[in-house]
Design a protein around this nucleic acid. Structure first.
Lengths: 137, 137
DNA sequence: TGACATCACATGCGCGCGCATCTAAGTTGC
DNA sequence: GCAACTTAGATGCGCGCGCATGTGATGTCA
């Protein structure tokens, strides 16, 4: 096969492959995100987006910095601006993050994780890792 | 490295890999599904779940069979039972599928694709393939 | 045959999402 | 310094989703 450089066949095979890759991703994504959603909610009272935001916040803050601009954190995530804003509101009501004014630019808000937020994140992260290992390891 | 079979290091590396795999899947999934959603909606008036249902229906029907039991089709998809039921309702209102009674079991419904549904599916499938090739090829 | 579990599907409900829009604050150009 | 534009973030709105439940038909067991 391929001795004539059969482009049509290669394209066909390639398209089937692309389609299959997407179908598998769709199935895996729904399976894993549903399980994460359930486990995080049941065990820690967090939705998946809540957790992913806390995760990004911890990563962006690093060990030294305590605050991140909301816009910068938003850029790290898959959420729309409005969904991001509401997720922050949820987490703030729960006491896991705090909005703080930014002296330089009064349009911006800094975002900081609270002690309670850090603790909740670390315990939820164990559940998170367990679920991912179960599906990807 | 690995000369002592360093299990801790391997586990750590493995966990990072799992986490990264999931993060990339999350990003890719949202990027691709958003683009599919937009392109299919703008070009063909179909949501992604609408399209995926038509796709599964065409696949299950094959070239000969004309009908599939709803439960069987549902099992092929990632949607919950309720979301599946409503997707069928949307597609039926649009005239792309038809529910038909099943003589054997009056709880069940057969599902059939209409001519309009077949045509819409085939033209949408070109858009679908184009988007997937753009991201996976 | 009658009581009970199960199945296929529909539907009320609440929620998180993206889109469009709004407000307030910063920026640019004349 | 003022008008026009851009940016950060909040919010009204509609929609699709999953969960829980309802309805009616089927299967099961005594």
């Amino acid at each position: 096969m391929c001795e004539h450089g059969n482009v049509a066949a290669m394209e066909a095979a390639s398209e089937v492959g692309v389609d299959t890759r997407w179908s598998e991703m769709l199935r895996t994504y729904h399976t894993v995100s549903n399980e994460l959603e359930h486990e995080l909610q049941a065990g820690h009272g967090l939705g998946l987006s809540d957790f992913e935001l806390l995760k990004a916040l911890c990563r962006c803050c690093g060990p030294d910095k305590a605050k991140v601009r909301m816009k910068d954190l938003e850029a790290e995530m898959y959420l729309s601006q409005s969904a991001f804003s509401r997720t922050v509101t949820r987490l703030e009501k729960a006491g896991f993050v705090e909005r703080a004014e930014c002296g330089f630019d009064r349009r911006s808000n800094f975002l900081a994780i609270t002690d309670a937020g850090g603790e909740r994140y670390r315990s939820a992260a164990e559940t998170y890792r367990a679920v991912l290992n179960e599906h990807f390891a």
